[in-house]
Design a binder for these strands. Structure first.
Lengths: 186, 186
DNA sequence: TGTACATCAGTGAACGCGCGTTCACTGATGTAC
DNA sequence: TGTACATCAGTGAACGCGCGTTCACTGATGTAC
């Protein structure tokens, strides 16, 4: 960490992304300053522009990474509604900075091809996780049920992160999420 | 609108709140500048401090107003899960700036007594709306069911506002929300 | 193994800008008598 | 109805600050021969 480094950083791109995640977690907002990130990375204030161009570019990179992490987490949960829902909430809590950026498309380049691809992978994983939801059968119903499942997981995660839930819900997001998701799964 | 006004504005407080709502809706973020609001209100840049002190004060006022509007909307929907859920989503879409601020407590004074009171009224109205949800009976289950209902309405509203839903969901939030909420109500 | 050169990553000074805050002020309103 | 005075709302100049961006630069790395 405190090792001296030469003129070249080695992996400044990665370091800047990590600094951005720290900054977002600290003040709970995806609004950030490139000069602040440079300071955190111990690098001159003009360096970030080399890698990302501007803030939107940096946040696009974070969103892509976030959608891919979410896709992986959902895939690991398998085709099981309860497991997928818990994985979704878990992801939001463990990667709150990513989560925060992903759902603020006005802050990044939502038309970036890599981003669209990553978001597609996350959506596909989500659909797979919801596939086992008991449904009445027609395609419309399946769509509606998938949307209900996504809404309940996303809503719970969002309320949790916004600190909007009453104290009585406790401090274990996994457990609380499981109880809530069961209501839909049965 | 373009009428001349004297030295005193008349209702600058109200005008500044309205300007803040406009600004938040325009760029989708509760981050705002007091100088910008003063410009929108046609008033000197030092005037806002007179009424709100600082940005957190102004956003606290917006959050209080938002929670009261939500409480009213829910009360009007009555003790009916489907109606309450639709009213919740409707409120979020019709008052997206209020909604945005309300669930970003790090941006306002969450310990303000008036705010806590207004939030309490909104929560009580929410509980009343959820009271008719079919449940298995124990108090724990009721809590869980209420949380599930809140999550699904909040999640749908949030995804809608974030423009995160696939196009196929359509452009009528009320209808789409009704279909999703039915999944829980039955 | 050695040299020359192109490419690339990071530097640091400079710029103009919008911001929040302070402060002495001015003009309007309301109240006491 | 009139006058004096206190209170309050809004002004405008000034300040220091952090920001994004530009630009000529420097130092390191990689490649051709």
């Amino acid at each position: 960490m405190t090792e001296t480094r030469g003129y070249h950083h080695g992996d400044l791109r990665r370091t800047l992304l990590a600094a951005a995640l720290d900054a977002i977690e600290e003040d709970g907002s995806a609004v950030l300053s490139l000069r602040d990130l440079a300071r955190r990375a111990g690098v001159s204030h003009a360096a970030p522009a080399h890698h990302f161009g501007d803030k939107a570019g940096l946040r696009t990179a974070l969103a892509i990474e976030g959608f891919d992490l979410l896709a992986q987490a959902l895939a690991a949960a398998g085709a099981d509604l309860l497991a997928a829902g818990i994985a979704y909430v878990d992801f939001a809590v463990a990667h709150r900075a990513h989560f925060e950026v992903m759902f603020r498309p006005e802050l990044y380049r939502a038309d970036d091809p890599e981003l669209i691809a990553a978001r597609g992978r996350a959506r596909a994983a989500l659909r797979a996780g919801v596939a086992t939801l008991p449904t009445s059968g027609t395609p419309t119903d399946t769509d509606r049920d998938a949307l209900a499942a996504w809404s309940i997981a996303h809503g719970f995660a969002t309320l949790w992160l916004a600190n909007a839930l009453p104290d009585r819900v406790g401090d274990n997001p996994r457990e609380a999420a499981r109880a809530v998701l069961r209501r839909l799964a049965t």
